[in-house]
Each structure stands twice: as C-alpha cells, then as structure tokens.
Amino acid sequence: MVTKIFTKEEWVRALKGAKDDYRIYLPVKHKDFHAFELLSDETAPDFEFQNTRLSPKSLIFPQSERMFEYSLDEKDGEAHIVKETPKDFYPQAVVGIRPCDAHALQLVNVNFDNPQYKDPWWVKRLESTILVGLGCNEPCSTCFCTSVGGGPFSERGLDVILHDLEDVFLVKPITQKGETFINKLGQGRMADDTLSDKAEAKARSSLEKVTSSIPTGKLRDKVVTELFEAPFWEEVAFACINCGTCTYLCPTCWCFDIQDEVLGKEGDRIRNWDSCMSPLFTLEGSGHNPRSEKCQRVRQRFMHKLKYYVDKYEDGVQCSGCGRCVRYCPVNIDIRHVAKLMNDFAQ
C-alpha cells in the first residue's frame, strides 16, 4: 500500500472534494473542547487537540436510535405491527479519530457482533465506516493506552493512520478499505524515506510520553466471587455521586435501553444509551433491585470492564486507556487506582 503526503490545506481540500461519496466527520474546535462534525464546505476542521471530548462512538452507535415504527390507527390494516425503520448506511469516514477510540470500537464489536447474535445496525454501520486515525504526538497525562494493548500510534481497528508532521500529514493506509478511500481523494504525493523516517521517529518518541499505566496482568486469575466481595468497594464508591459522566464519555460502554415513544397514532421503538450508574438500570417490576446501592453500581462498572470482560472474551480489559473518565469524573474516581486495587487484591 502506498503512503502519501498531503499538506494540511491539501488534505482538507481533498476531503471536501470527496464529501459526495462519503459522509466525512472531522474534529471541530468549540470553546474548550473538540467534537466530530459532518464536513460541509464551511467546516473548518482543527487537528490541534489531544482528544475530542466525546469519542466518535455515536457515529456507529448513536446515542438515540430509531429501531422500529408502527401505526396505532385502527383504520390501518397493519396497526400494531412493528416494522423496521428504513435507514441508509451511506459510506462514512471518521477522520481524526484517536487510536484509543478506534481500539475501543474493536472492544465493543465483540458485544454487538457475536457468534450467536448480530446487531444489524451496528454491524452495517461499522462496515460502512472508514476510520482514519490521527496518531498522538502529545498524549495526555491521563492516557494509559500502552498498558491496555494500544499505543499513541496503534493501528488496531484503523483503516488509515495520519502522522502529523507539522506542516504535512503522512497518510498511511492500513486496510484495503482505507487505501480505496485515499485513492478516491486523488491528491497528495508519494511519501519519501526522509518523511517516513521522521514519522517513525516521532511515533517512537510519543510512545515514551505515555507515562501513565494500569496493571492488568493478574486480573484473569482472580476468583470473581472473591474480587466481588473485596473490602475496597465501599471506599472506591464513597465519593461517587452517580452522575453517569464516566459511562457517558466512555468509548467502550455499550449498554442501552429500549423505549416506545408515541405521538398521536404513530409510534417508534427507540434505543438510547443507558448507564449502569442509574438505579433504574436494574429496577424490576416487582420493586426488587439487585443493584439498588451506589456501591453495587460502581462495583459493576469496574468489575465489568476489568474482570467480567476479561473472563468472557479472554482478550484483555474493556478499556482502551483514553483517560476520559479520569479527567472528567467530578469526584476524582480513577480507574488506574481501582485497577491497581483489583490487580493487587489478595484474600
């Protein structure tokens, strides 16, 4: 596959030229954060960020998504029959996704696309998406991707990776899908050895800038019931206000709720992101709630990511080390600290 060089102006111009063939999402600067937005002629993308406030997970798994629709009008011959809401799965490209967030999509994929059931919307949308990563020259102080199977220039889950070399991007296709996309853009020049070497050196040096880590090596061997009963959960959960920020920001959280919404005689069945931090998440019709207490819910979140997932899939933890939950938790609950407690736990 051919690695190319684009000046930053050329890159944005080339993307704008391809926006009829793909829906292209790019990071755009708001006051104090970056967010992915659909590219239009007016869009001014900005690649000067450490990470976007939210991962682009919602472009594959929308925060709120219509699943089905139905009529409740008795005059309608098909009243009460639930039908699939028509959707298009137009090709889309997410340009500027950080490697941790692409890795996260891979971690979530095992949930939505498993040997027994395939979530059709997730599968089709992921298939129609090209992930163009932007390697991290300046990782955050809270990043710990290197200890969970990723890295600032990890190619896991990406179709293309960009190396930011100040005034130019080195654009390296990783998959066939990624190469097709780059060829469609039709611009850029071949990368020469000098620039390729420079990109490699930069990537190597950024690896050393990831100074934060979590220990995970002993999690698999812990007895789940012992870890569950460990004495530290009360202390971990003590300050938690159950705001749900961690689950909302997490690129690997996948839980959702299903609700019916009716307007007049038309209705929709919709799924919405949900959060294990809410007591309603597990409240049963009888009033019984297996996780009625805050401590149980906090434990569920960490046990799911760092133990249940590890046991179930035998492919590491359900965390890509983006550090968002660490940065945004209003009471400073730190997954790195909890992972250490769990990994070091001995009965």
Binding site: N114, Y117, V224, C255, F256, R271, D274, Y308
Partner: peptide, 15 residues
Amino acid sequence: MKCGIGICGRCNIGD
C-alpha cells in the same frame, strides 16, 4: 431485561 439477547448489558450476574 431489554434486548433479551445478551447485548444491552443490564441483566448480568458476573460475566
């Protein structure tokens, strides 16, 4: 339960 097929994430006991 919601999804009934092990995807929506709420009815777990351990893994």
